[in-house]
Design a protein around this nucleic acid. Sequence first.
DNA 1: CTGAAAGCGCTAACAT
DNA 2: ATGTTAGCGCTTTCAG
Lengths: 353, 353
Amino acid sequence: MNDRARVPNAPPRGGVREVAQLAGVSPSTVSNVLNNPHRVAGETRLRVEAAMASLGFVRNHAARLLRGAPSTVIGCIVLDISNLFFAELTRGIQDRLTDSDCSLMLFSNDVDEEREAHNVRVLEEAGVRGVIADPVVWPSGPLSELPGRGTPVVLVNCRRKTAPVCAVAVDNVLGGRLAARQLLNAGHRRLAFVRPTRDVPSTAERAAGVREELRAWGLEPRSALAEIRLPSKLRAVETADDAVDRLLALSPPPSGVLCFNDMAAIGVLRGLSRYGIEVPEHMSVIGYDDLAFTDRLSPALTTVHQPAYELGHTAANLILAEHDPDHRHREVLLRPHAVARGSVAPPPDGRRR
Amino acid sequence: MNDRARVPNAPPRGGVREVAQLAGVSPSTVSNVLNNPHRVAGETRLRVEAAMASLGFVRNHAARLLRGAPSTVIGCIVLDISNLFFAELTRGIQDRLTDSDCSLMLFSNDVDEEREAHNVRVLEEAGVRGVIADPVVWPSGPLSELPGRGTPVVLVNCRRKTAPVCAVAVDNVLGGRLAARQLLNAGHRRLAFVRPTRDVPSTAERAAGVREELRAWGLEPRSALAEIRLPSKLRAVETADDAVDRLLALSPPPSGVLCFNDMAAIGVLRGLSRYGIEVPEHMSVIGYDDLAFTDRLSPALTTVHQPAYELGHTAANLILAEHDPDHRHREVLLRPHAVARGSVAPPPDGRRR
DNA sequence: CTGAAAGCGCTAACAT
DNA sequence: ATGTTAGCGCTTTCAG
């Protein structure tokens, strides 16, 4: 084999050699007009450029990489690209990378450990300049081995723990407390927490925050907080909708529902409306993330704001900064804040329960 | 230079050579255990595999590519990843690619022609196996030159016109008609159309559909349809919110607003509520896309459904199919359908206007 | 079943 | 200012 197994009738892609020949110079001169334009005489450069244009010359990135050029692609592994939170985060990364002429290789792993491992491997084989990831498992997973082999890693939405990497996260424990506090403040004493079956670090921290807050109010999580687990790999909107059946079967019934993210909250809202249960009159609901449209939901969703775009932008900054020889790993911790809207009200019976 | 300009203190990444040495075999045998495992004796293979493991061997994708291996990465260029429509579409692509062990290199170009051209170039230089794109310009743009140089292209959300490529699109002209029809059916005769300043093929087609429908009802687009243009590169939610000022300044005022997509519709809803204008009592609003949460908006958004995930899934199928030597280019045309919910009602004065 | 050798396209010394 | 040479890591005939 050899013609690159490209599309059937494609003309062979010409290389520097061919350009050099047409321009009547040597391959290294062509390379120079590409990489050190100042070192080549103006007239020669023009001739070479004309040759490149007429041949439709396209640089071969693989060959440059092999020769030792620094890669311009950054890998990114998110949990679910169809969640607007990650879409926003991805955009933050994109925008920053674009400014530095870098590209993004994106994976969405559906919170699947095996897929995460596979994606990490592909990225490493591709020789990317660094990897930004919201880890499914940390600090023990496959991601943790990358830095030791020369591929920088930046964690998003996850504390670095003790690992020697950069990380940018939102304080999820605080976020969990903030979420719980809104319900508690409104008088709710029996809560349900809708969360994934498979916890990732960020959701585990949120859960810890919720429990902390409960205890701070003198409540015992074990009895005051019922947990509803959602199958992890499917769309939260749908699984949460389904889970409302279980939510309503709880006894004693909760008067407020904490959702691990806004997408799940939408599902809960939908499920509740299936049963004709009004929010917040009969049931309070709180989300997490503060996605762009949550203020227009019916009712407007009370939630906890996370700066998704900024998270992505910062992560991109950090990964790009790894290039600097005297770079020190650091952790950026952003603060979430509560957003009170219309989906939380005092419990229906007027008394605390 | 030479140690790959990787992270400062990284150990040099060992290659097949090193593995071969440790296993006491030749590099080609190592290559064989990687690519033709059946051709190597069981015991030798085990030894080689052990050596790879102990050295933390990672295949170099660039070198394989250079040697002629078919690429496993597919490029994708969308207009705006922070629009849930594209996030869903991207997920459809991802899921399909994952099944074929391929990866996704994703770009979001903010409807910017130059960025599109740049992204196309990067993808071509990377030697990707194919490119899936929702083009900003077609059929004259940089995307159109790819197939001739050996990189297959699949259009999403855009008709192929006469070009020799595959495409998967939703019938946008029909979609535009469907959107307009819902307003017309409810009795509206003066409409506003909120659309981007910079049309991409899909929005231009929707606009054509809207005009067609108007004419079918005996209305003259020029007088019955006011156009509100949104700056293209910013988030539609925000620009549409701002545009409500202009919308309300229209004279005579429209009683129904067509939005080029759901994100813009959310912005319009938000802007309208700023003015205390109720939807649909005082103004009807219709979106486009039917994003996952639109049924929970207040009011539930009347819109036109587009199968975003299926679009992505099909596009991935098509690009993967280009590998087949006797592949014929084809265009898949999906049908949109109207989704009537609560944001459209008869015009406020009860009479047609 | 395993090894030796050549080369993919490009770039960086080192000549000239 | 330009050309010559060698080699990045891998795979693939072709011999042994």
